[in-house]
Each structure stands twice: as C-alpha cells, then as structure tokens.
Amino acid sequence: MPRKLTHQTKSLLLVAFLLLIWWFTPVFFKRWTNIAFHEFQAPAWTGLSYLRDLRSYWVLRSYRKSELIEAGVEMSRLNAAYMLRNQQADFLDREIERLEAFYEMPSYEQFHYEVARVVRRDLTAWWQQLVIRKGVNYGIKTGQAVVFSGGVVGRVSSVGAYTSTVELISSPHFRAAAHIEGDERPVEFRGGDNPGLLPATGHVSTVPADIIATLKEPVRLTSSRLGGVFPDGLTLGWIYSLDPSPDGLFQTGKVMLDPRLKHVREVAVLIPFEPRPGAEEQ
C-alpha cells in the first residue's frame, strides 16, 4: 500500500478487501466454514454443560442425609405411580394395536425418545434456540420434534456431530399446525411474542368461530400429527381469549406458553421409528 495512506484508510481498504473476498467465496465454502465454526466450539459448550452438571452434583452432595431419604421416598412414590401409568399406557397401546389390526388401519407413526441435556440457551428478540448435547451420534435429524414434561419445546433446526440446535416454539420463525383440545380442525400456531422479563407467548390463528376461550375456562392448544412432525395431543400452550376476525370465519388469540421453556434443562427428541420392512406394501 502507498505510504501516504493513513492507518484508517488502510484499515478501510483491508475491510473492503476482506468483504470482497467474502462476497466471491462459494456458498458451499461459507456453509462449510459455518459448520466448522459450530463444531469447533461445540465441545466447549458441551464442556460447560458438564461443568454445570458437576456443579449440580456437588450441590446435591451437599444435601443432608435426611433430605436425601425424603427425596428418595418421594421418588419411589412417583416411580410407583408412573409404573402404574405405564401399565395403563401399555394396555391402551395394545388396545390401539388390536383395533388397528381389526379395522385394517395403518399404524400411527411411533417415536422413541432421546433425552438430551440443554447446553446453551440463546433466547433473544430475534431468535429463540437451545443447543442440546446430542447430535448425529444419536440419530437426531433436522426437523424432528423436541418435547419436555410441559409439552412441545420446538423442532430440531440443525444437527452437529455431538450437538443439535432446537428452534423453540417461542421463536418468531416457528410455525406449526395445532389443534384446540377436543377439536379436530387444524389451526395455525406461530411463536414470536417474547416480551423481555415476561413469559413468552405465541399466536394462534384460523381458529374456528365456534371455539370459546375465557379466562375462567381457557382452552389448551395441542400439537397436531397432521403436520407430520409432532404427535397429537402435546401441549403447546393455553389460550385465554380469542378475537373474531373481521370476516367472522376465524378467531385469533394469544397463546400463553409454558414459562418453564425459558429454563428447561433436559428435553427429549422424538425420533420416528424406521418403517418396518414390508410396511409400505401393507
């Protein structure tokens, strides 16, 4: 560079040069760079989450024996209750299978759950995502449903070797088909209303005009299997009021999402079972 140029002009030229190079870089290279950067820092995020786990472990270690016994007793009670529920669920599953076989209906797509720890939460005004501690190594794929004890968490938006990114239902880019509980007609759910310091909300539209939601009797918005990602019946949120659209056909409303979404620590990815060989022919 000529000597008479100032430091700032040189810097500007350098920036311009860098941007020019970036402009002409092939897309696949940019994509590769992105993935490489992601994979580069994934171990660090995972490491941080293990540190958190370790910290939790030591926090738990600090409990008194009596407290642990109490927690153990409580847990065994819960285990007993869940075992009972499991038996009921098994019975219902068998009943469903029997009815499907009787009516020669195709079987519902089934999932298995891959439980994963949350290693990073990135909840901003522009995007709402989590990074979880499992990736391709556990068979996770883009687009799969992610759930937790409170209902739907979101959808896998990208998958790395050992981590996956989950787009939360509160994200402004999230949209899904849903049902009002007890109603078969699909409605549209969108995330995106995330006021600071307050619980996240979503937005529901194309709700049929005959659905009524009040503060006293809110309705539950559940996931729909019609969209092809989520199974039926998982909670998306609660609707406390609906406003009719000007055409009188639909209603729109705000969906109160589970506040636990903001600090969820463990989620489950729903991985569909591969179709059985010969299932297509049936």
């Binding site: 088909a177 729909s224 969209g227 990602v229």
Partner: peptide
C-alpha cells in the same frame, strides 16, 4: 385440512 396442516408446518 391435512394438506393445510402439512404446509403450515413444513
């Protein structure tokens, strides 16, 4: 309704 749901979601 089925197609609508698929498109909304995907």
């Amino acid at each position: 309704p089925e197609d609508y749901a698929i498109l909304i979601e995907q």
